[in-house]
Amino acid sequence: MSPQTQEIGRTREQMAQRLAQDIPNGSYVNLGIGIPELVARFVPEGRTLIYHTENGLLGMGPSPEEGKGDPELINAGKRYVTANPGAAYFHHADSFSMIRGGHIDLCVLGAMQVAQNGDLANWSTGEPGAIPAVGGAMDLVAGVKSVYVITQHCTKEGEPKLVESCTYPLTGLGVINRVYTDLAVIDITREGFKLVELSPGIDFDYVQQRTGAPLLPSS
């Protein structure tokens, strides 16, 4: 599509801010690497969320001041973080018991493709020569109660990321509940993609044209 896509609709920060409005007070939340990390900056006043990072910390706090990082206190993206009062450390099998055992309320992930039935592809293009790496994504989508995706609506080349069926290797089947993009918020329903709301200044047809499967209007 046209380069205009970059200039209208929500910025990455605005997408993260929009998603943060929908997280209930007191939730246990796992944020993926990339745009999902921005969500933590925009939690509405008065709400307390407990952040889980898969490498063994519940109660993750913001990045430390420049130069104050501790190489043994990092997040899943291997960046320096802090521990909030009330935090807990634990080993990896416990961490993934929290994930797989359904104890985490919400996780927010990036995506390469999301299909209309909720299938997610976000770990490999499957191209020869690509180095496959999966991390914790498959465990997260299998066990966390709600799984949201936050992503640009289209790839840099303008291809839809919301598709009829994924062509990249899957991360999980029917696992995504909702997608937040620069253009819209879209639920995954039994009938397929269903609009929740349009970003300011965006109309339905504009989103439908950039979505690889039928988009149901909001009810």
Partner: peptide, 26 residues
């Protein structure tokens, strides 16, 4: 998958030769 890796190691140490997980199905 990372959680499967962790559980495989835990199981190995706990005398469990195999287990079933929902991660990576399909």
């Amino acid at each position: 998958p990372q959680g499967t890796l962790a559980e495989r190691i835990r199981a190995g140490g706990a005398g469990i030769p195999a287990f079933f997980t929902p991660a990576a199905v399909g």
